[in-house]
Design a protein around this nucleic acid. Sequence first.
DNA 1: GTCTATAATTCGATAGAC
DNA 2: GTCTATCGAATTATAGAC
Lengths: 188, 188
Amino acid sequence: MKTSEKLILETLKLFHERGFKATTMRDIAERVGIEAATVYNYVNSKQYLLDQFLFGMAERFYQGIIHIEQSTYSPIEKIKAVVSLNIRLTVENPYKVGLLVSEWKHLQEPRRSEFLENRKAYEGKFRGIIKAGIESGDLRRMDLEVATFSVLSSIRWLFSWYTPEKSSVNPIELEKQMTDFILHGVTP
Amino acid sequence: MKTSEKLILETLKLFHERGFKATTMRDIAERVGIEAATVYNYVNSKQYLLDQFLFGMAERFYQGIIHIEQSTYSPIEKIKAVVSLNIRLTVENPYKVGLLVSEWKHLQEPRRSEFLENRKAYEGKFRGIIKAGIESGDLRRMDLEVATFSVLSSIRWLFSWYTPEKSSVNPIELEKQMTDFILHGVTP
DNA sequence: GTCTATAATTCGATAGAC
DNA sequence: GTCTATCGAATTATAGAC
């Protein structure tokens, strides 16, 4: 593996294990097997590394929901597609998705505000899907805010407990199980 | 307000806004209106403050689910009670609940391990409730792990989006809405 | 209880040789 | 591309006067 690749990978693991603030450039250098000063041959700053991780993932979530929003799917099919999107991105990038919900506070302005705007836009698009579903009668009449965040929360925390290797279900089965939960709850 | 009370309150707000690592003793002192050295007249260390917040809340969640577990409620009634417990504790202590899920990594050993064991025990008890419900037929047949964490995730993230003042629903209505979602999903 | 002063350490980042 | 050396700033915490 190239040093540049190893640097990115080890940094991601350290941010995941200890958090951005508790990870030092010296920690990163040690994992890669170089000196701290050499890290600056690859990146301008520690902030840059966090920025790349967060906005890289945020953009993929955002583009994903835009495609779903613009599709001709029914509201329920759109919800299924969002669940599928979340599972796919989380399984492919569990650490980055984890950073997305825990380390954005450490972005510097104006990037921090940009990040929050992006997240708000994502949530707004999801809310639109739920709203359309309620109005068309495909979904139950319920409070829009509660419905939006209840569904979002159940899929956003996937990263914290699901790993395909250790779980009793594979990603395909997980998608079915989670969709069933969101659509029908836990009662028979 | 007594200085000691103001110190606790302002520290909690700062930990919430910036995170534990990004909050300095000087920040805390400034909000309270004293010098940094004076903070040490009230607390032994910054770690102590985080420790108190996290274990104080963790204990309340733990005691709550123990009482629910030992009750004669049916599985569905126990789930409703856990939802109620989460809403009550989150509305009463939104910042502390937020720290519970975002700042535990910054506990020092052995407290960090103790915290994780407590959380695992809490999750285990909740899993037991779901398991009993599936076996009794009160709940749908579904993967135990997925069911446990799907429900837990939907209520654990309450702190990040719900505030009684700004929401269209009050805590009582929120409890009904969330219970309906967990039991029956979003479809009619 | 609150202050000033400061110890002791750590951190992000840079300079410049090779 | 990698190193040694180091700067300058920030941080937790303590000592001791008032």
